[in-house]
Amino acid sequence: MSKYLMNKFLYTIDRDPALVARYKEDPRGTVAWWETEQAGRILNCAEAEATTWLRFSDEERTALAEHDYPTLFDLGAHPFLTLTLFIAMFEHDYAEPLAFQREYARRLAGRTLPYPDIAT
């Protein structure tokens, strides 16, 4: 498990509107593509390097592929990264202003302080 890799995925997807759209439409394919083709390149790793920190755990991969931000939060994904990315992906699916943000807060409401370690 690499919290850094998971957070890097969230950060890089969120910074490119085309990737945000791709991740919304094909989450499983986007996660697989990013993990196999982008992770090492973005992190400036030698092509031959294949350490475990360049791969998502099964739990991370599943949570990313299912847009499961409560599980991502539990796994240590930075809450600002999940919030900004998922706002970009889903806020237009809600009719009321701030409706997605309220849904996000509701789904994370069962978490108590201290939050999971979000250090990278």
Results as ranks from 00 to 15, higher is better:
T112S: 08
A65T: 12
E49V: 00
E66T: 07
A77N: 03
T51D: 06
W34Q: 07
A50M: 08
R102S: 10
E49M: 02
G40L: 00
E35N: 02
V20T: 09
P114K: 13
D16T: 14
R102V: 07
I87E: 14
T52W: 15
P27G: 14
T62G: 00
A46L: 12
M89V: 12
Q38H: 08
A88C: 10
D58F: 06
L81R: 05
Y23V: 01
F86I: 00
F73Y: 11
W53H: 12
R41G: 06
F100W: 11
R61P: 02
Q38V: 06
T71F: 06
K24N: 03
P114E: 12
R41S: 10
S57H: 02
A63Y: 09
R61L: 11
T12S: 11
L98K: 13
L113T: 08
T120S: 10
I87N: 12
L98H: 13
E96N: 07
L43S: 13
A95T: 12
R41T: 15
E66S: 03
A50D: 15
I13K: 08
V31C: 08
L43N: 13
E91P: 03
S57E: 02
A119D: 12
L81Q: 00
F56P: 00
R111I: 12
T112R: 10
W34F: 15
L5S: 09
E103H: 13
A39D: 08
L5F: 05
L75M: 11
L72W: 10
A99L: 10
E60T: 06
L98P: 01
L43R: 10
Y94G: 05
T62L: 11
D58H: 10
A21F: 08
H92F: 10
E37M: 14
L108W: 04
Y115D: 12
H67C: 08
L113A: 05
N7C: 13
K8P: 00
A119Y: 05
P97S: 08
D26N: 15
A50R: 15
A88Q: 15
L108S: 01
M6W: 06
I87G: 07
F80E: 10
A95V: 05
V20H: 07
R55F: 12
L19V: 01
A32T: 10
A32H: 11
S57A: 12
D26T: 14
E96Q: 09
E103K: 07
P70T: 01
Y69K: 03
R55S: 11
R55A: 08
E96G: 04
E96F: 08
A88P: 00
E49Y: 11
H67M: 11
D26P: 00
A46D: 15
D68G: 01
S57W: 09
F80V: 02
R55I: 05
R15I: 13
T84C: 04
E103Y: 05
E66K: 09
D93E: 13
F90K: 03
R102D: 14
R28W: 07
A99E: 11
A21V: 13
I13Q: 04
